[in-house]
Design a protein around this nucleic acid. Structure first.
Lengths: 230, 230
DNA sequence: ACAAAAGTGTTCGCTTTACACCCATGT
DNA sequence: ACATGGGTGTAAAGCGAACACTTTTGT
């Protein structure tokens, strides 16, 4: 333990948002250094007395001004010793989800610019960040099947079709509307409100709300969320 | 990036083995330092130019003399800033599986002793290592349902009942022998050899072998391994 | 002959899937 | 009245779950 080590520790975040049938990732443009003007994932070095998850939140707040609704550790990238030109840096990557409604991006410290990129049109990123994004996407695609994290991409109140379209978009598959609604409602973790959705054309729909405490209670009794596709 | 950071990077491994209906974890007893004589997971500091997974393999080889059949990254522990008394150390934990047949434990560098502990009787470990073990166990329990990693705990040739008992042991549930066999064989990823198993009493059984290349080929065509219980 | 483990099919119920028409609203 | 998206039920197929007797070997 007395060995002198010269490895730096960073965190990076793959933050997803969803809007109008489009899934996006948050990227920032570097302001300084060797990677100036390169797009990268928000992130940076961990402070000496800072828990990893606090480092992620701090970097997100500093570089983009946003705070997320859901966050989990994704993977630690440290097998490519030369992944950062400036020296050995390992990065602990996190995946996060956010409802972008009412959020405003604000590039500041370290970042010249911050912006959402649709997952279909991510530019070439510095480091191994393209790989991290695709690992994050994979995690998200898998996890929406067996954990109710999709709701963290939606506003608190949402029409049922929003959930359906979210699943269609993220999974890339078609869903049978009737079967999907039947399945999700059978879980009894959504509250139907008496408000209705008014936007665009067509018949207005009721707004629903994810009841997290009900979900938690059900889980305690052995319930397991699972959605397969029609 | 010019910030001076004082965080050390370690790796730790939760290595599982299976023998006679018992699942065990590999532990080592510390030889030096503040944690002398404490049982811990095999692991240690990463070298400056060493990929993380190489560090795990090196530490395992140095401290216990074993090499593993399967290894995957588990989780990075870095939210508890004081998890190591000697200073800030984050640890990237790996889960590994090994067939203990013909393996010999050899404690050496840094370790006074190395030994298998049944998962039901793990002592109090230093650091947060009890937590890491239980996270590893959880990962293993979940993963055998949807990835064919159980075979890495068995010898190359095994009687069908060994697989069945492995699943019973790890999941802690009872399995219907007929349904289990039907399901597994339906995947067509096992080769039936003409050798037979001779040990103990009862009718001898045929030995089977996991056909990894066949499995890989099937996966490429959309096959998904999945085992639920009767 | 007995004990011990291997080997083997069928039935039932539930879940998944496939599928099409009417309703409420805005223009 | 037409366009747009919301809301709803039923039948067929496939999969998971429950269940018991015969076979082979050693003692």
């Amino acid at each position: 333990m007395s060995v002198n080590q010269n490895i730096k520790v960073a965190v990076d975040a793959v933050v997803f948002s969803y809007k109008k049938n489009e899934l996006s990732v948050l990227l920032v443009k570097q302001k300084y250094g060797v990677y100036k003007n390169k797009w990268v994932l928000p992130g940076g070095l961990v402070l000496d007395n800072e828990p990893l998850k606090d480092a992620v939140k701090r970097e997100l707040s500093e570089e983009t001004g946003i705070s997320v609704d859901y966050m989990e550790q994704l993977y630690t990238y440290g097998d490519e010793v030369g992944r950062d030109k400036r020296g050995r840096v390992i990065s602990i990557a996190y995946m996060a989800l956010v409802d972008p409604d009412g959020m405003k991006l604000e590039a500041s410290t370290d970042a010249i610019d911050a912006s959402w990129f649709k997952v279909g049109s991510i530019p070439n990123l510095a480091f191994d960040h393209n790989k991290i994004v695709s690992d994050g996407l994979l995690r998200l695609r898998n996890k929406i099947h067996y954990q109710p994290i999709g709701f963290d991409l939606l506003p608190e109140l949402f029409p049922f079709s929003a959930l359906e379209n979210l699943y269609k978009t993220i999974s890339g598959k078609n869903i049978d509307r009737r079967n999907f609604r039947k399945k999700v409602l059978s879980f009894d973790i959504l509250e139907e409100t008496d408000k209705i959705h008014q936007e665009g054309s067509g018949r207005p729909g009721k707004l629903f709300k994810f009841n997290k405490s009900k979900y938690d209670a059900l889980v305690k009794h052995g319930f397991h969320f699972e959605i397969k596709y029609a």
